[in-house]
Design a protein around this nucleic acid. Structure first.
Lengths: 237, 237
DNA sequence: AAGCGTCGGCTCGCTAGCGTACATAGCGTG
DNA sequence: CACGCTATGTACGCTAGCGAGCCGACGCTT
């Protein structure tokens, strides 16, 4: 019983599954540790494993070329990596980079696809997750285009904090610049502004969120919209 | 037999289906005329019908608010509108605007979902289409962020021409500005540049593509990438 | 304790694109 | 055949963000 509770609690996509599906999931998966900075996969490479993060999280990055790259989605305990297998495609659309170290459930591609056949509730929930991702991708396209670096940075910090689950985040300006697709100096200016306003504090690669409500205020509305969408389509039940 | 040929030829998602599926599709659908400028649906509204354009095409627009909106995808005869029903969600993620008048197959939502149950090949093909859309959304996010107006305009004209199927396009700068999420004056400058280079000619809302290879050259690589992806994942067989 | 690599603050000149506004030029209509 | 609408050309000052680079500060290593 404790293990069943554990699965549902560990990753939100697994919440609310019938116990038969939870058991099947547990039987098929293993728990692995993801190391910060690890590249799980590059675009168009074959997906050999899917990951359901527990307390780790993964950045999904669109790269047009080596210079132009940009994070377009994030998968933490509210999501998964390898979703395209649900669509019957075993190649990765994006670069997957471990951004928060921690543990994750892992299944190999074949087991995962067999599992989907046995688990209609999980299968449906993952289809809903795809819908959420599509909307978030569309919103990101607009957000990256219209919103200022400072608002996007605030949004990004909030999203990261939700997945990392603490006030302390391990992030350099350099890394943030890559994620937001902007210059490092641009991030520095935005970060100074957020710090001056007392919303965050940072020092040599450690960022602390001091005032979460204030940060939400500073972020663009996209943050709230994304949260609301997820909550509506994938309630934790 | 002619009708079977017709279905497969009319919309590329229907190409290569077994004839039993083509027949089922034809039995369930009707043909409608889409009028230029018609708003098929707004975000979060319930999808009552799905559309498979034949010679019409539809813009899918992400709108953050009334000012900030941006086209993130296009559905012509290579695609469809209402894809989220395949994921079991009957709300529209985006604003759907008829951008090229013409005809389309239409099915109501219930018929469509029943059809999917009867047509595994179609169902799988539509899942592949979702994968293509996700990658294109991700690429759009990066493209809109990194690429210049002129290159994006060129890309957009090419995409539109592919769907409209002629050299002549009915488009004002005003409209293009809305699609690209930029100022009208910005479009004018980019259009002047393309015209000066002999790639297009335009006059009062009619744009003619004069030099398609040259326009591909002027567009960002995203155009070729999108085409290649579609061809690879959804071959016309 | 010195050295070195990493991180962040800051500057410079520059460009793309913005918001706004006004002027011109086709074209349909009365 | 003048009127008025719509589409396009253009201009002005402004801002965000770019690319490149330099410097200082911190902290780990030796």
């Amino acid at each position: 019983m404790t293990s069943i509770f554990h699965v549902a609690d560990a990753n939100r996509l697994l919440a609310g599954l019938p116990s038969v599906e939870q058991d099947a999931f547990m039987a098929a998966c293993e728990t692995v540790e993801l190391v910060f900075g690890e590249v799980l996969i590059k675009p168009t490479e074959t997906i050999t494993h899917v990951y359901f993060p527990i307390d780790s999280f993964i950045s999904l990055i669109a790269s047009l070329d080596t210079d132009d790259q940009l994070e377009v989605a994030m998968a933490g305990r509210e999501g998964m990596f390898g979703i395209s297998l649900v669509l019957g495609i075993d190649e990765s659309p994006l670069l997957a980079l471990v951004q928060g170290a921690g543990s994750a459930f892992r299944l190999n591609a074949v087991s995962f696809q067999m599992l989907l056949l046995k688990c209609p509730v999980l299968h449906q929930r993952l289809k809903h997750y795809i819908y959420v991702m599509m909307r978030q991708l569309a919103r990101s396209a607009a957000c990256n285009h219209f919103h200022r670096i400072e608002a996007r940075l605030a949004r990004w910090l909030l999203m990261t904090q939700d997945r990392a689950g603490g006030e302390q985040l391990h992030l350099t300006h350099e890394f943030l610049a890559m994620m937001l697709g902007v210059r490092r100096a641009g991030v520095t200016l935005a970060a100074i502004s957020l710090q001056t306003r007392g919303l965050i504090h940072y020092q040599r690669g450690e960022i602390t969120v001091l005032d979460r409500p204030g940060l939400i205020e500073a972020a663009c509305e996209c943050y709230n919209q994304d949260c609301a969408l997820y909550a509506r389509i994938l309630p934790v039940i």
